[in-house]
Protein backbone atom coordinates (compact mmCIF):
# COMPACT_ATOMS: atom_id res chain seq x y z
CA UNK A 1 0.00 0.00 0.00
CA UNK A 2 1.45 3.43 -0.89
CA UNK A 3 2.44 5.51 2.11
CA UNK A 4 0.68 8.78 2.65
CA UNK A 5 2.81 11.80 1.88
CA UNK A 6 4.10 13.38 5.05
CA UNK A 7 2.37 16.66 4.42
CA UNK A 8 -1.05 15.29 3.49
CA UNK A 9 -3.96 17.75 3.69
CA UNK A 10 -5.32 15.87 6.70
CA UNK A 11 -2.04 16.12 8.55
CA UNK A 12 -1.74 19.80 7.67
CA UNK A 13 -5.21 20.39 9.05
CA UNK A 14 -4.39 18.57 12.30
CA UNK A 15 -1.15 20.52 12.69
CA UNK A 16 -3.07 23.71 12.12
CA UNK A 17 -5.62 22.74 14.77
CA UNK A 18 -2.81 22.01 17.22
CA UNK A 19 -1.33 25.46 16.57
CA UNK A 20 -4.74 27.04 17.14
CA UNK A 21 -5.21 25.07 20.32
CA UNK A 22 -1.76 25.95 21.60
CA UNK A 23 -2.62 29.63 21.28
CA UNK A 24 -6.27 29.68 22.28
CA UNK A 25 -6.80 26.58 24.46
CA UNK A 26 -10.25 26.54 22.94
CA UNK A 27 -12.42 23.64 24.16
CA UNK A 28 -14.09 23.11 20.79
CA UNK A 29 -10.74 22.79 19.02
CA UNK A 30 -9.62 20.33 21.67
CA UNK A 31 -12.79 18.32 21.14
CA UNK A 32 -12.09 18.10 17.39
CA UNK A 33 -8.55 16.92 18.13
CA UNK A 34 -9.87 14.29 20.53
CA UNK A 35 -12.33 12.99 17.94
CA UNK A 36 -9.58 12.85 15.33
CA UNK A 37 -7.49 10.54 17.53
CA UNK A 38 -10.08 8.21 19.03
CA UNK A 39 -9.01 5.37 16.71
CA UNK A 40 -5.56 5.56 18.28
CA UNK A 41 -7.11 5.49 21.77
CA UNK A 42 -9.23 2.43 20.95
CA UNK A 43 -6.29 0.67 19.36
CA UNK A 44 -4.04 1.18 22.40
CA UNK A 45 -6.82 0.20 24.83
CA UNK A 46 -7.25 -3.08 22.92
CA UNK A 47 -3.62 -3.92 23.60
CA UNK A 48 -4.52 -4.13 27.29
CA UNK A 49 -7.58 -6.35 26.78
CA UNK A 50 -7.85 -9.72 28.59
CA UNK A 51 -6.51 -8.31 31.84
CA UNK A 52 -9.86 -8.43 33.56
CA UNK A 53 -10.89 -4.80 33.03
CA UNK A 54 -13.90 -3.70 30.93
CA UNK A 55 -12.90 -2.36 27.52
CA UNK A 56 -15.00 0.79 28.02
CA UNK A 57 -13.02 1.60 31.17
CA UNK A 58 -9.75 1.12 29.32
CA UNK A 59 -10.91 3.46 26.55
CA UNK A 60 -11.77 6.07 29.17
CA UNK A 61 -8.36 5.74 30.78
CA UNK A 62 -6.65 5.93 27.41
CA UNK A 63 -8.72 9.03 26.62
CA UNK A 64 -7.32 10.73 29.71
CA UNK A 65 -3.87 9.99 28.33
CA UNK A 66 -4.92 11.50 25.00
CA UNK A 67 -6.15 14.69 26.69
CA UNK A 68 -2.83 15.05 28.52
CA UNK A 69 -0.93 14.49 25.29
CA UNK A 70 -2.99 17.12 23.46
CA UNK A 71 -2.34 19.64 26.23
CA UNK A 72 1.40 19.02 26.23
CA UNK A 73 2.07 18.57 22.51
CA UNK A 74 4.20 21.21 20.81
CA UNK A 75 3.35 21.31 17.06
CA UNK A 76 6.51 23.27 16.29
CA UNK A 77 8.73 20.34 17.18
CA UNK A 78 8.12 18.69 13.81
CA UNK A 79 7.12 15.37 15.40
CA UNK A 80 3.94 13.52 14.51
CA UNK A 81 1.38 13.77 17.27
CA UNK A 82 0.89 9.99 17.38
CA UNK A 83 4.63 9.53 18.05
CA UNK A 84 4.29 11.83 21.03
CA UNK A 85 0.91 10.56 22.25
CA UNK A 86 1.45 6.79 22.25
CA UNK A 87 3.87 6.69 25.25
CA UNK A 88 1.61 9.09 27.19
CA UNK A 89 -1.50 7.01 26.59
CA UNK A 90 0.25 3.68 27.27
CA UNK A 91 1.73 5.19 30.44
CA UNK A 92 -1.73 6.18 31.61
CA UNK A 93 -3.05 2.65 31.00
CA UNK A 94 -0.12 1.08 32.87
CA UNK A 95 -0.58 3.45 35.78
CA UNK A 96 -4.23 2.45 35.90
CA UNK A 97 -3.37 -1.24 36.20
CA UNK A 98 -0.69 -0.53 38.76
CA UNK A 99 -3.09 1.47 40.94
CA UNK A 100 -5.88 -1.06 40.55
CA UNK A 101 -3.73 -3.96 41.61
CA UNK A 102 -1.99 -2.42 44.57
CA UNK A 103 -4.93 -1.18 46.60
CA UNK A 104 -6.16 -4.43 48.16
CA UNK A 105 -5.81 -4.06 51.87
CA UNK A 106 -6.06 -6.95 54.26
CA UNK A 107 -7.82 -6.72 57.64
CA UNK A 108 -5.38 -6.07 60.44
CA UNK A 109 -5.90 -9.50 61.99
CA UNK A 110 -5.00 -11.22 58.77
CA UNK A 111 -1.93 -9.03 58.32
CA UNK A 112 -0.74 -9.90 61.81
CA UNK A 113 -1.36 -13.59 61.12
CA UNK A 114 0.68 -13.21 57.96
CA UNK A 115 3.65 -11.83 59.92
CA UNK A 116 3.42 -14.72 62.38
CA UNK A 117 3.26 -17.28 59.58
CA UNK A 118 6.08 -15.65 57.67
CA UNK A 119 8.35 -15.66 60.73
CA UNK A 120 7.50 -19.29 61.51
CA UNK A 121 8.17 -20.44 57.94
CA UNK A 122 11.49 -18.60 57.85
CA UNK A 123 12.61 -20.01 61.21
CA UNK A 124 11.59 -23.55 60.26
CA UNK A 125 13.33 -23.35 56.86
CA UNK A 126 16.56 -22.09 58.42
CA UNK A 127 16.57 -24.74 61.14
CA UNK A 128 15.46 -27.73 59.06
CA UNK A 129 16.81 -26.77 55.62
CA UNK A 130 13.51 -27.46 53.93
CA UNK A 131 10.09 -25.94 53.45
CA UNK A 132 7.52 -26.80 56.14
CA UNK A 133 4.09 -28.19 55.44
CA UNK A 134 0.93 -26.64 56.77
CA UNK A 135 0.57 -29.05 59.71
CA UNK A 136 4.07 -28.13 60.85
CA UNK A 137 3.34 -24.41 60.60
CA UNK A 138 0.12 -24.95 62.53
CA UNK A 139 2.03 -26.88 65.20
CA UNK A 140 4.66 -24.15 65.61
CA UNK A 141 2.30 -21.17 65.64
CA UNK A 142 -0.72 -22.69 67.37
CA UNK A 143 -2.89 -21.44 64.52
CA UNK A 144 -5.36 -23.96 63.08
CA UNK A 145 -4.53 -25.53 59.71
CA UNK A 146 -7.58 -23.87 58.13
CA UNK A 147 -6.45 -20.46 59.35
CA UNK A 148 -2.91 -21.10 58.13
CA UNK A 149 -4.23 -21.91 54.64
CA UNK A 150 -6.49 -18.85 54.66
CA UNK A 151 -3.66 -16.64 55.89
CA UNK A 152 -1.17 -17.84 53.30
CA UNK A 153 -3.51 -17.56 50.34
CA UNK A 154 -5.13 -14.26 51.33
CA UNK A 155 -1.78 -12.62 51.68
CA UNK A 156 -0.66 -14.18 48.41
CA UNK A 157 -3.59 -12.64 46.60
CA UNK A 158 -3.38 -9.21 48.19
CA UNK A 159 0.35 -8.80 47.94
CA UNK A 160 1.42 -7.29 44.68
CA UNK A 161 5.12 -7.62 45.13
CA UNK A 162 7.43 -5.34 43.30
CA UNK A 163 11.02 -6.13 42.53
CA UNK A 164 11.72 -2.76 44.06
CA UNK A 165 9.88 -3.64 47.27
CA UNK A 166 11.94 -3.57 50.44
CA UNK A 167 12.99 -7.05 51.48
CA UNK A 168 11.62 -8.61 54.61
CA UNK A 169 14.43 -7.64 56.92
CA UNK A 170 16.59 -4.55 56.73
CA UNK A 171 16.32 -1.62 54.39
CA UNK A 172 17.95 -3.06 51.29
CA UNK A 173 15.86 -3.11 48.16
CA UNK A 174 15.41 -6.49 46.54
CA UNK A 175 17.04 -4.99 43.48
CA UNK A 176 20.20 -4.73 45.55
CA UNK A 177 19.92 -8.31 46.73
CA UNK A 178 19.40 -9.87 43.33
CA UNK A 179 22.50 -8.28 41.90
CA UNK A 180 23.47 -7.43 38.38
CA UNK A 181 22.87 -9.22 35.14
CA UNK A 182 24.03 -12.81 35.10
CA UNK A 183 25.94 -14.00 32.03
CA UNK A 184 24.14 -17.29 32.11
CA UNK A 185 20.76 -15.63 31.82
CA UNK A 186 20.90 -16.15 28.10
CA UNK A 187 20.28 -19.83 28.87
CA UNK A 188 16.82 -18.92 30.01
CA UNK A 189 16.18 -17.22 26.71
CA UNK A 190 17.40 -20.28 24.84
CA UNK A 191 15.34 -22.68 26.92
CA UNK A 192 12.24 -20.59 26.44
CA UNK A 193 12.95 -19.49 22.86
CA UNK A 194 11.43 -16.20 23.87
CA UNK A 195 14.17 -13.73 23.15
CA UNK A 196 11.83 -10.86 22.43
CA UNK A 197 9.80 -11.14 25.60
CA UNK A 198 12.76 -11.86 27.85
CA UNK A 199 14.56 -8.76 26.68
CA UNK A 200 11.66 -6.70 27.99
CA UNK A 201 12.20 -8.03 31.51
CA UNK A 202 14.65 -6.26 33.74
CA UNK A 203 17.88 -8.14 34.40
CA UNK A 204 16.87 -8.71 37.99
CA UNK A 205 13.54 -10.20 37.00
CA UNK A 206 15.35 -12.52 34.62
CA UNK A 207 17.73 -13.45 37.41
CA UNK A 208 14.93 -14.58 39.69
CA UNK A 209 13.43 -16.72 36.95
CA UNK A 210 16.89 -18.10 36.20
CA UNK A 211 17.40 -19.28 39.77
CA UNK A 212 14.06 -21.08 39.75
CA UNK A 213 13.85 -22.45 36.22
CA UNK A 214 17.45 -23.01 35.13
CA UNK A 215 19.31 -23.63 38.37
CA UNK A 216 16.23 -25.46 39.62
CA UNK A 217 16.41 -24.01 43.12
CA UNK A 218 13.32 -24.41 45.26
CA UNK A 219 11.65 -21.32 46.64
CA UNK A 220 13.13 -22.04 50.05
CA UNK A 221 16.62 -22.36 48.57
CA UNK A 222 16.20 -19.08 46.67
CA UNK A 223 14.94 -17.44 49.84
CA UNK A 224 17.98 -18.71 51.71
CA UNK A 225 20.36 -17.47 49.01
CA UNK A 226 18.78 -14.02 48.81
CA UNK A 227 18.07 -13.61 52.52
CA UNK A 228 14.34 -13.10 52.05
CA UNK A 229 11.35 -15.22 53.03
CA UNK A 230 9.89 -18.08 51.02
CA UNK A 231 6.57 -16.23 50.91
CA UNK A 232 8.28 -13.24 49.37
CA UNK A 233 10.03 -15.39 46.77
CA UNK A 234 6.67 -16.95 45.93
CA UNK A 235 5.11 -13.54 45.32
CA UNK A 236 8.03 -12.26 43.29
CA UNK A 237 8.11 -15.32 41.08
CA UNK A 238 4.40 -15.15 40.55
CA UNK A 239 4.68 -11.52 39.58
CA UNK A 240 7.66 -12.06 37.26
CA UNK A 241 5.79 -14.84 35.47
CA UNK A 242 2.76 -12.60 35.06
CA UNK A 243 4.90 -9.82 33.61
CA UNK A 244 6.51 -12.22 31.17
CA UNK A 245 3.14 -13.55 30.09
CA UNK A 246 1.82 -10.02 29.57
CA UNK A 247 4.88 -9.18 27.51
CA UNK A 248 4.22 -12.22 25.34
CA UNK A 249 0.54 -11.50 24.85
CA UNK A 250 0.87 -7.72 24.47
CA UNK A 251 4.44 -6.95 23.43
CA UNK A 252 4.75 -3.38 24.64
CA UNK A 253 7.99 -1.98 25.97
CA UNK A 254 7.10 -1.24 29.55
CA UNK A 255 8.02 1.22 32.23
CA UNK A 256 9.66 -0.21 35.35
CA UNK A 257 7.04 -1.58 37.74
CA UNK A 258 6.65 0.50 40.87
CA UNK A 259 4.61 0.22 44.00
Amino acid sequence: MPRKPKNSPKREKIQSLFRDYQETRDAKTKSVLVDAHMDLVRSLARRFANRGEPQDDLIQVASIGLLKAIDRFDPDRNVQFSTYAVPTIVGELKRYFRDRTSTIRLPRGLRERSYTLNAAIQKFSQECGRSPNISEIAGITGISEEDVIEGLESVETAAVASLDMAKDSGDLSLLDVLGDEDKELSMLDERLSLAGAMSNLEAREQNLLYLRFIEGLSQTEIADRLGISQMHVSRLLRRALQILRHELVTPISREPFQT
Partner: peptide, 26 residues
Amino acid sequence: EDMIQVFRLVTTALSNRVGLNLDQAD
Protein backbone atom coordinates in the same frame (compact mmCIF):
# COMPACT_ATOMS: atom_id res chain seq x y z
CA GLU B 1 -8.99 -14.04 37.00
CA ASP B 2 -10.98 -13.58 40.21
CA MET B 3 -11.40 -17.37 40.34
CA ILE B 4 -7.67 -17.93 40.72
CA GLN B 5 -8.02 -17.44 44.46
CA VAL B 6 -10.67 -20.17 44.58
CA PHE B 7 -8.51 -22.92 43.14
CA ARG B 8 -5.42 -21.71 44.99
CA LEU B 9 -7.27 -22.26 48.26
CA VAL B 10 -8.40 -25.72 47.16
CA THR B 11 -4.95 -26.68 45.90
CA THR B 12 -3.26 -25.52 49.10
CA ALA B 13 -5.79 -27.34 51.30
CA LEU B 14 -5.51 -30.60 49.35
CA SER B 15 -1.72 -30.34 49.18
CA ASN B 16 -1.84 -30.25 52.96
CA ARG B 17 -3.90 -33.46 53.05
CA VAL B 18 -1.27 -35.23 50.97
CA GLY B 19 1.51 -33.78 53.12
CA LEU B 20 3.20 -31.65 50.46
CA ASN B 21 5.32 -28.84 51.83
CA LEU B 22 4.78 -25.16 51.02
CA ASP B 23 7.28 -25.16 48.15
CA GLN B 24 5.51 -28.07 46.49
CA ALA B 25 2.03 -26.65 47.08
CA ASP B 26 3.10 -23.32 45.65
